[in-house]
Amino acid sequence: MNKQIIIDGEVVTYRPGQTLIQAARESGIYIPHLCYQPGYHAIGSCRVCMVKVNGRWASACTTLAAEGQVIDNRTLEVDAHRKQIVQMLFVEGNHYCPYCEKSGECDLQATAYELNMQEDHFQHLYPHRSLDTSHAEVWLDRDRCILCGLCVQASAEQDNKHLFTLGGRGTATQLLVNSSSGQLGETNISAADEAVAVCPVGALMKKQSIYSRRSGERTYDKTPISKLEFKA
């Protein structure tokens, strides 16, 4: 039998075992998210999907739906916290959207637009991160990596290649490549890999396919990510 929770005043049905974000998606309710993508295990690391469950903060991708939950999702308070988290993701990397090949197609940027973020608020760290252009088809720009871990999962479970892992601690955490030189060029990654397709930002990119759509015609140019989530 279906059970019910309440999200922003709306009754949402769920099946036991579903997380809040899964239940919400099935009812066409958008909860902002970056490191969670449907079809992947939730690791609850980006914190963008934080909601208030009966007054307490919880990540919607890792919290199971349960009877009696009343959830704040798109309230001013919750979205204000989310915006700060996204701002931290921006200052923690080097995000130069004006020339980034992912601009207009990027989930991080689109989430910033969704949350009406207009500036970065925090002090910029301008970290020194390395760029790997050693592979013929794919490049890795760590300046833009948000350490979501999606490529790690995709490469291991869908591509069966185990090419990536997250290494280091705190602000020194970075995406590592599984080859003796640590370079992509030595791996058998291909532009068709799910690991490349799933990257929500401009960190893992296919070579020779960049700037293929004009500004104004790209995915998020006119339509917010919250509206596109449930299209098709």
Binding site: Y96, C97, P98
Partner: peptide, 18 residues
């Protein structure tokens, strides 16, 4: 008012920050 990417995050000139 901070106008444009460079005023907001340094922009292209900030590429020298590394």
């Amino acid at each position: 008012v901070a106008v444009g990417a460079c005023a907001i995050n340094g922009g292209v000139p900030a590429l020298r920050n590394r």
